[in-house]
C-alpha cells in the first residue's frame, strides 16, 4: 500500500509542478509583451509608439488598417509632418498632415493647423468647438515609419470581439496543453 500511495503522491506533485510551469510561461509571455511596449514608449518618447490608421482621410498614402510608427522628439513641429493628435472631447487620436505652423517669437509656442490629404478642407471642423489651432500638448507624435495591412488584426479584433475571445481561448488552450 505504501508503494501505491507514493506513486499517487508523485503524480500529484508532477501535475502541480506542470500547472505552475504553465502559469509562469504564460506570465512570461504577457510580461515580455508589456516590456516591449513600454520599451518602445521610452525609445520613441511617444505615449503610443504605434498607431493603426482607422479612416481613409489620408488616402492614398495611408489606408485603413495600415500601421504607423511614431516618434516624439524635442524638435519643433514643421509643415508637412504627419502628426497624431488628440482633440479635447474626442477619444480617438487622428493622423493628419500639418499645413500651417506659427511659432511664437518670445515663448516658442506653436500654433499648428492640420489637414487630411484626402479631405477637402482643413481640420478646424474636427477640432473642439471654437478651437482654431492645435498646440504642442495635443500632439502625441509624428509618423516616421509605415507598415501596410498589419493593423487589420486589431481592427478586426476590436470590431468583432468574438474573434478576440476565440483567439485568446485557443492560445490559452495551446499553452496549457503543450508539453515542454
Amino acid at each position: 500500500m505504501g508503494y501505491l500511495g507514493e506513486m499517487v503522491e508523485s503524480i500529484r506533485s508532477l501535475q502541480i509542478r506542470h500547472v505552475l510551469t504553465q502559469i509562469i510561461s504564460l506570465g512570461m509571455i504577457v510580461t515580455s509583451a508589456l516590456i516591449i511596449w513600454k520599451g518602445l514608449m521610452c525609445v520613441t518618447g511617444s505615449e503610443s509608439p504605434v498607431v493603426v490608421v482607422l479612416s481613409g482621410s489620408m488616402e492614398p498614402g495611408f489606408k485603413r488598417g495600415d500601421i504607423l510608427f511614431l516618434h516624439m522628439s524635442k524638435d519643433p513641429i514643421r509643415a508637412g509632418e504627419i502628426v497624431v493628435f488628440n482633440v479635447d472631447g474626442r477619444e480617438i487620436p487622428i493622423v493628419h498632415r500639418v499645413i500651417k505652423v506659427h511659432e511664437r517669437q518670445d515663448t516658442g509656442e506653436v500654433d499648428v493647423l492640420t489637414k487630411g490629404d484626402n479631405n477637402f478642407g482643413d481640420d478646424r471642423l474636427l477640432y473642439a468647438h471654437g478651437q482654431l489651432w492645435l498646440q504642442r500638448h495635443h500632439i502625441m507624435g509624428r509618423a516616421v515609419g509605415f507598415l501596410p495591412y498589419v493593423g487589420w488584426v486589431t481592427i478586426i479584433m476590436t470590431e468583432k470581439p468574438i474573434i478576440k475571445y476565440l483567439l485568446i481561448g485557443a492560445l490559452g488552450l495551446l499553452v496549457i496543453t503543450s508539453k515542454e
Binding site: P60, G61, P76, R78, A79, G80, R97, I99, K100, V101, H102, E103, R104, Q105, G108, V110, D117
Partner: peptide, 24 residues
C-alpha cells in the same frame, strides 16, 4: 506628396509656414 509653403518671419512669430498648394 509635394507642397509649396510661404515662409516668413514677423515680430510676433519667429516661424510662419503656410501651405499654399499641394499635390500627390
Amino acid at each position: 506628396f509635394v507642397f509649396l509653403t510661404a515662409e516668413y518671419e514677423t515680430s510676433k512669430n519667429s516661424v510662419n509656414q503656410i501651405s499654399l498648394w499641394d499635390h500627390i
